[in-house]
Nucleic acid binder design. Structure first.
Length: 259
DNA sequence: ATGGCAATGTTTCATTGA
């Protein structure tokens, strides 16, 4: 199974690029974030023509997630939202695909550490920890993929001294991320040797991408049993280039069918 | 050479993202 997470920053704007990327990369499962589309406006026709069935959980303007599943693969037990954490914001959709529980999450940004949004982010992360702990009991083969909006380690930040204490890299956020690892989840990207200065997001401003001033905030976390079957994980930096890119690049994991 | 914010709606600015 080839599984991808990609914050597309408006599916409406990014649809042509997404369709092109699907054709070139042929993933089996795609976790999208920031679709910014109500479900009634989801482009099921275009995604269908590309060879995928979509399960969406969106809203207008902000947030919104979707799971794309390649034709021939079945998605069962599709669930929307974070269990036990009532939330108006559409940030989570999960399904079981080929025996794997796939949880697609768009963790709140937090804006700044002194904002209400940051408090909401920390509360949300705590709710996610509880929900993940329960999900892992029911689903030993589990993956949490998404824009987790946390850079877990200094090497995930282009300038750790500059970002220390800032939102996306503050200690409470990183503690929440470590809490997910403590549940038995493994950072798929770090299971493999990676180029130094690997990031998944670059600000549109200040030439951040050409200067490679980015953060690694998009992640694929695998349960221990599933991590043993993960054969590769990489970031497709090329997808950040060209006309009208998302500010995030896709993260891709290869998961073997062998047991 | 990849490029100096982008997307959305409340639209000609404000809000949000990260």
């Amino acid at each position: 199974m080839k599984l991808v997470t990609w914050n597309v920053n408006s599916l409406n704007v990014r649809l042509p690029r997404l369709v092109e990327w699907l054709a070139a990369n042929a993933p089996d499962v795609v976790c999208l974030q920031e679709t910014k589309l109500e479900d009634a406006r989801f482009p099921h026709d275009e995604i269908g023509k590309a060879g995928y069935v979509a399960h969406a959980y969106g809203q207008r303007t902000y947030n919104g997630v979707a799971l794309l599943v390649r034709d021939g693969l079945a998605a069962t037990d599709v669930a929307r939202g974070l269990p036990g954490f009532p939330d108006e914001q559409k940030r989570v959709i999960a399904a079981t695909i080929a025996g794997v529980r796939v949880i697609n999450a768009y963790v709140p940004n937090g804006q700044s550490v002194d904002s209400d949004k940051y408090a909401y982010k920390l509360a949300w992360c705590k709710g996610a920890t509880t929900a993940l702990a329960e999900a892992l009991v029911a689903h030993p083969l589990l993956v949490l993929a998404g824009d987790l909006n946390i850079a877990p380690e200094p090497r995930d930040v282009h300038d750790p001294a500059l970002w220390e204490g800032q939102v996306l890299f503050s200690e409470p956020e990183r503690a929440a991320f470590r809490g997910w690892l403590a549940l038995g989840l493994v950072d798929g990207f770090r299971r493999f040797e990676q180029p130094p200065n690997s990031f998944s997001w670059w600000d549109y401003r200040m030439l951040a991408f050409p200067k490679n001033r980015g953060l690694r905030i998009d992640h694929i976390l695998l349960s221990t049993a599933l991590a043993a079957r993960c054969t590769a994980c990489r970031i497709d930096r090329n997808a950040r280039k060209g006309e009208k890119p998302s500010d995030h690049a896709p993260v891709i994991a290869e998961i073997s069918d062998d047991r």
